[in-house]
Design a binder for these strands. Structure first.
Lengths: 204, 204
DNA sequence: ACCTCTATAAACCGATTCGGTCAATATCGT
DNA sequence: ACGATATTGACCGAATCGGTTTATAGAGGT
């Protein structure tokens, strides 16, 4: 495991990205080490040299992804932004940053939910679930509720935006290349459209 | 091929659903006939007996799915509903109906976009693309634009709702069972929340 | 009771791919 | 030039692939 950590950042990243891509596309059983090796441009043997086994690779990638997930969202200082929509724009911006680094990380993480095969599943599911709840709470805790029109439930708006971002990311994922700034702008203007209709006129 | 058509509806449906599920989950190469047979509760030989080959099965399922897709959306008479939001609620309702019959049909259809392997790809992609454009147009053509507040572009709203439905369906897909009515209600109330904020007060 | 036919399954085919090992080689610091 | 190390390609037995062929169980006719 130490051998891998001593590689230069670029190579490490290429291998990690290859792993995330493959494990994001296939479930554990059908994702093959050879595929990861090919995608990373190294020989299969190196994977086993670095990670010992397929499971070792898988666990490393899980750890890495979860770490990225947590550090980006939780330590991003999102709760310091008090405006609901600003916070969500920050949220989507963060998600885009993660995706620009590892486009299929979310597929990879999402696969945990579907994967009903491996042993570590229980641990992973509970951990992800916990972090998801945490992330969701973070979008609502200490937020300026009074800016909303009276008849609007902020929880509903939060759900809408989460689905919207999810659906949008789904579309983005299929584009061969993506322009981070253009995407961020489109998403931002969309969210602002919601804002301008859900906020009291005083706060626009 | 005729042998298959002569089966009773229940059995046919089970095989079709198994095929859609497997081909929806994996790309063409990694989806195996054995898996489909197991899922359908029949022996692999029968698949070859009914469809001749893996490709035969695949093409049958494509045809079936596209047929369902088209007949549900295009022939559903959506353009006869003039209210924008009513139309979208009809749209989501239709999508749910399709999913309640074959939960992974959309994954299956979506896989065409990702699949860069098979020969028929070109035909399929163009066909789907066409139908998608058609479906999108159908949500906007002859719709009551005057109900919207002046500063709102109806195309933006259409995009929002499409992403929203997509993201929501993504979540629904992961639930082990799903209550069609409850889901429809949740989606409906969400869309109505948008409606009540995007329409002029006169039309509420 | 016997035969035939048909639907289905099980066994099997060669080819490929799987996770994993290992000996051989390319690379590099000294 | 040498020894250490990084990396590879060939190889292993096992599993699985798409597809074929044989075996079997039962329905129906006579």
């Amino acid at each position: 495991m130490t051998a891998f950590e001593e590689l230069n950042e670029e190579k490490k990243n290429k291998i990690i990205d290859a792993g995330i891509t493959v494990f994001g596309k296939y479930d554990y059983k059908r994702a093959s080490v050879s595929l990861v090796a090919n995608e990373a441009g190294i020989s299969k043997s190196m994977i086993f040299h670095y990670f010992g086994s397929k499971r070792g690779l898988y666990e490393y990638l899980m750890e890495y992804s979860f770490q990225t997930f947590v550090s980006t969202y939780v330590e991003g200082g999102m709760t310091q932004v008090s405006d609901f929509f600003d916070r969500f724009m920050m949220f989507s911006r963060m998600q885009l940053e993660v995706m620009s680094k590892h486009r299929f990380m979310f597929d990879f993480i999402l696969n945990f939910y579907i994967e009903r095969d491996t042993e570590v599943l229980d641990y992973v599911m509970s951990t992800i679930e916990k972090s998801k709840k945490l992330g969701f709470q973070m979008t609502l805790v200490d937020v300026d509720r009074h800016k909303f029109k009276e008849n609007i439930k902020i929880e509903d708006v939060a759900k809408i935006i989460q689905w919207l971002i999810d659906g949008y990311m789904n579309q983005v994922k299929m584009q061969p290349y993506f322009d981070l700034i253009a995407i961020d702008n489109e998403l931002k203007s969309t969210i602002m459209l919601l804002q301008s209709n859900f906020y009291k006129p005083d706060y626009l």
